[in-house]
């Protein structure tokens, strides 16, 4: 049985990250941008876990360091989405649009 090379996971994560980046650049709807950010965070998680699984564990370090990293990323992502949706709702109520291009009252 052939194991999966590490680089495959890295390239998959890179591809997902790039797609997420494209989404952030291309999308105008704020919620779509939020979704794209979630894709990028997930891609980063894949990298963390892949390096953890393929690397040799360091003596005295946590045996599941990569997983712990990923868990904290997931925690922060969940909080981020909750606050993000709250902000978007507020902006929508004020400007009646969820397009990021419309939130420009700070630009001179």
């Amino acid at each position: 049985m052939n194991d999966i090379p590490l680089t495959w996971f890295l390239i998959f994560a890179a591809a997902c990250f790039v797609i997420g980046l494209m989404g952030v650049l291309v999308r105008r709807n704020a919620i779509a941008v939020l979704m794209a950010i979630e894709i990028m965070l997930n891609a980063a998680n894949i990298n963390l876990v892949a390096f953890w699984r393929y690397g040799t564990p360091v003596e005295g370090d946590s045996p599941i360091s990569g997983v712990m990293f990923a868990i904290f990323v997931i925690t922060v992502a969940a909080a981020e989405v909750a606050v993000g949706i709250g902000l978007i709702l507020l902006c929508y109520r004020r400007w009646h649009a969820a397009d990021v291009d419309r939130f420009d009252s700070l630009s001179g």
């Binding site: 919620i31 939020l34 979704m35 979630e38 868990i71 997931i74 989405v81 949706i85 978007i88 709702l89």
Partner: peptide
Amino acid sequence: VQVLVYIGAVAIILMFGIMLT
């Protein structure tokens, strides 16, 4: 945990957000 948090919570919040905006 990924399924629980992302599909069970984040996706639902996003859907609610889509519906409301």
